[in-house]
């Protein structure tokens, strides 16, 4: 087991090195993307700041809380895009048949596909988000327990995000309309810039349990602020683990389906 993990990690490093050299080849694009992402982030924070300053808070959240929600959103979405970048290029690999060659290699295809390309743009933006997380979080004066829950839920969010990637990748084996599913998800994801309860009970519930954005983003942030009931913490982990289990099962199903489909 340990040996297998070590081997996967080594391959992951090599793949990472390869995508780094790709990034370095497109330095101009790299810089532009980085600037664009930073610009979007700071402009949004600026807007939020002025909106909340004037209105004195939205749906019982203060300006600093709202900004923290926003920063957590960016942090988690950036982390998952950094690690699970592969889902954006996977469909192309299926269409071109490159996936067949991946499948015929002695390495877990799922591992290769989901973790296969590491996004260094997100890695470069990460320190800024960590700093933003620190500076907006310190205003909220969390307890040590709050921080522990926050970190644990953060890992849970990555598990959820991984499960989502597995779902998308599996779907790409069955249908070719996956690009749209990913893009629609990304649009929906932006709803979690704000705590999902501001959308009212109905939509809030859907966003929490169906598209689990609430569990992925709002819950960790709330735990940090010490306003998340412990039963929701437990629920989050149950949700995270079961979606991991189900998504892996779905991947196996999709692979079998792919294997019996026409070439």
């Amino acid at each position: 087991m340990i040996k297998r993990i070590k081997r996967c990690f080594r391959i992951w490093l090599i793949l990472g090195k390869m995508s780094l050299s790709l990034h370095l080849m497109r330095r101009f694009g790299f810089v532009v993307f980085f600037l664009g992402k930073m610009f979007r982030f700071f402009f949004f924070v600026l807007f939020l700041f002025f909106i909340f300053k004037r209105t004195g808070g939205v749906a019982s959240y203060s300006a600093s809380q709202a900004i923290f929600f926003f920063v957590v959103f960016h942090f988690i979405s950036s982390l998952s895009q950094m690690f699970f970048r592969g889902i954006y290029t996977f469909r192309q690999q299926v269409v071109s048949g490159g996936f067949d060659l991946i499948l015929s290699k002695p390495l877990s295809a799922l591992f290769r596909v989901v973790f296969g390309s590491f996004d260094f743009i997100d890695l470069v933006t990460l320190p800024f988000f960590v700093f933003a997380l620190y500076s907006s979080g310190s205003l909220l004066s969390p307890s040590l327990l709050d921080i522990t829950f926050f970190l644990a839920l953060l890992i849970n969010s990555l598990v959820l995000s991984f499960s989502f990637s597995v779902l998308v990748v599996s779907l790409s084996l069955i249908t070719l309309e996956v690009d749209h599913i990913v893009m629609i998800y990304r649009d929906l994801e932006t709803m979690a810039r704000f705590p999902v309860d501001i959308y009212g009970k109905g939509i809030g519930t859907i966003l929490t349990y169906v598209i689990p954005l609430g569990i992925m983003i709002t819950f960790p942030a709330k735990a940090f602020m010490g306003i998340l009931d412990i039963k929701f913490v437990v629920l989050s982990f149950v949700f995270g683990l079961s979606s991991l289990f189900l998504s892996l099962k779905f991947w196996r199903f999709a692979l079998k389906k792919y294997a019996s489909a026409s070439s």
């Binding site: 080849m25 071109s96 067949d100 060659l101 991946i102 015929s104």
Partner: peptide, 14 residues
């Protein structure tokens, strides 16, 4: 090993 004439495993830009 599987070699397919029209499919490549080599990374295009590297």
């Amino acid at each position: 090993s599987l070699v397919m004439g029209q499919k490549n495993q080599l990374w295009w830009d590297l």
